[in-house]
Amino acid sequence: MTEPSPDELLAGVAEALQETVLPDLERGFGRNQVMAAIGIVGRCSEAVDRYGPTLYAGCVDLIATLRETTAADPSLLSDHARDDLADLLRRSVDVLDSGYPPPSALAGLHSELTEHLAAILLAGQQGESGQMPALRELLRRISDREEQIGLSPW
């Protein structure tokens, strides 16, 4: 494989910009732009390795929790939404069982799952569902995962 790896490359770019470009720039919008770019590149260098696995773990977690909570409280889903979710869960197997799924496919699946989660949460909140604690825990885990890939070390 090509070396350096993407995470090493991005970390190097951030470091080089910080060490060799930033000191030569006068205060102003251009310097602020470079500082922001260093932060973004630095965050991506940390996130690039974890992005796919975190998305994969997120999809697996969402599928399991959505299955469990909607089975325990069928009122969380309308008939139409139940059919849609069942279809999505069938399709999710194609993505998750396809060897090393590309992050773009995982991101697409994750996005569809969270659309369902949002609707289920609103139904659960309105109907005071007994599944709300489990769904809130899922939200907490989603935030934790986002934090793992979201915070810049720069």
């Binding site: 973004i40 809130r136 935030s143």
Partner: peptide, 25 residues
């Protein structure tokens, strides 16, 4: 094209974690 805005969504995980701490279970 302000790069300070570009990656702002990445901070929201921490904000929501704080929200969950503040809201009773």
């Amino acid at each position: 094209l302000n790069l300070r805005h570009a990656d702002r969504r990445a901070t929201n995980g921490a904000f929501l974690r704080r929200f969950y701490e503040l809201v009773p279970a």
